[in-house]
Design a protein around this nucleic acid. Structure first.
Lengths: 209, 209
DNA sequence: TGTAAAAACTTACGCCGCTAGTTTAAGCAC
DNA sequence: GTGCTTAAACTAGCGGCGTAAGTTTTTACA
């Protein structure tokens, strides 16, 4: 086949297919040849639309981050804004866990990532936090959110009971996987509560740097 | 060359070389052929000592986690134990950042990882925290520690000033990289303080689940 | 001393990202 | 309408990847 009358590929179609493939089978499954097959095309054809594979993955990351609700900072106190944003971000990453390693390295040049950083940092500055502290708080939130999204704590323990014979306190660790949601969500909620409440206390005491 | 009079490889030599290669050039640089070259050997020879590449990487992860000081739980209050352990873990990961993605998925079957989980969880249980809360606290600490180790927050922003023209609050984001240590360490220290202090407050108020 | 296991080797398979060059259709200038 | 440029698909192929299979030689032990 040479050039078709109607183009088979668009950047949008490619990103959508890549996103679905990554969600369904993971980052490693998303090779150029495999992605092309998914789109009914030969591998190198993708290079007519993206210069490298990294650009495709980056576009997927961008489309995921764009789903995070950053409007919450406009209508809320910084504490509530931070909490609602974190929950939205957390929920988006929970729906697309396989792309998290890409996001964990920072916003890079992605507009949605930069817009999110702008919204968070701006809200903290406008609340009165110092530049340095606002940066720390932003970093801290990213640590919690991507750290929790990167790998389930519960699933980090294998289901084989014999594995824990030598570790008296871990004798029920093989049951963790069955309570995955409660464990992982509970830990995230606890962390969010602890961080925001204690930041709030400091703020109310006038400690803002 | 057939079998040499003195074995060229041992599991220890392989793990050591892999660890150095990963530290120096990253996980992707550590291919079987490259690692073998580093050891003065052909690629497939490594399979006489490890069944898969994943086993080698896992052994590197194990050797890194084994460097974390978990003795601190014996001589300290749970708060101070938690703080000292977290700092030790953080320092170890800062020295070996390229292996962090492997650790972030949990202890798996690695003895050092399981011993660490046992120490943390045991200390929390013996302090009086409920099983569920102790699990949450352990998960939360991992989120913070691996989240912060996974990618520098400061380096997540590119040094190109023009990138931030559209984002009024980010106009100095290109300077972040120059303050990498202050930003990243400040955020981690803040997070650790906030979490442990607020957990300590709850504990002192008798809220242990 | 004969045999089995160990530890190196070479060769090769099917993936991978990506480059180069080819073919044909589309879009535009005259 | 005709010719030129560009776009979007193709095929072929390079060097690298993890790993399997089979070979060679040495060592260790019965």
């Amino acid at each position: 086949m040479a050039r078709p009358r109607q183009a088979l590929l668009t950047r949008e179609r490619i990103v959508e297919a890549a996103s679905m493939l990554i969600d369904a089978e993971g980052l490693e499954a998303c090779s150029m040849r495999r992605l092309a097959t998914e789109l009914g095309v030969q591998g190198p054809s993708l290079y007519n639309h993206f210069a490298t594979k990294a650009e495709i993955v980056d576009a997927v990351a961008e489309s995921v981050v764009a789903q995070v609700d950053i409007s919450v900072f406009r209508a809320n106190d910084w504490r509530e804004g931070l909490r609602l944003w974190a929950k939205s971000y957390h929920a988006v990453l929970a729906a697309h866990p396989n792309i998290v390693p890409v996001l964990a390295t920072g916003p890079g040049r992605r507009p949605a990532g930069l817009a999110m950083a702008e919204a968070v940092y701006g809200a903290l500055l406008e609340a009165g936090w110092s530049r340095a502290r606002a940066t720390h708080i932003g970093a801290l939130m990213r640590y919690l959110i991507t750290g929790s999204a990167l790998g389930s704590f519960a699933l980090g323990f294998e289901a084989d009971p014999e594995l824990y014979d030598r570790y008296p306190h871990l004798h029920r660790a093989h049951e963790l996987a069955a309570h995955r949601a409660a464990v992982d969500e509970g830990a995230f909620e606890l962390g969010l509560d602890l961080l925001i409440n204690s930041l709030s206390d400091r703020y109310d005491q006038g400690v803002r740097r």
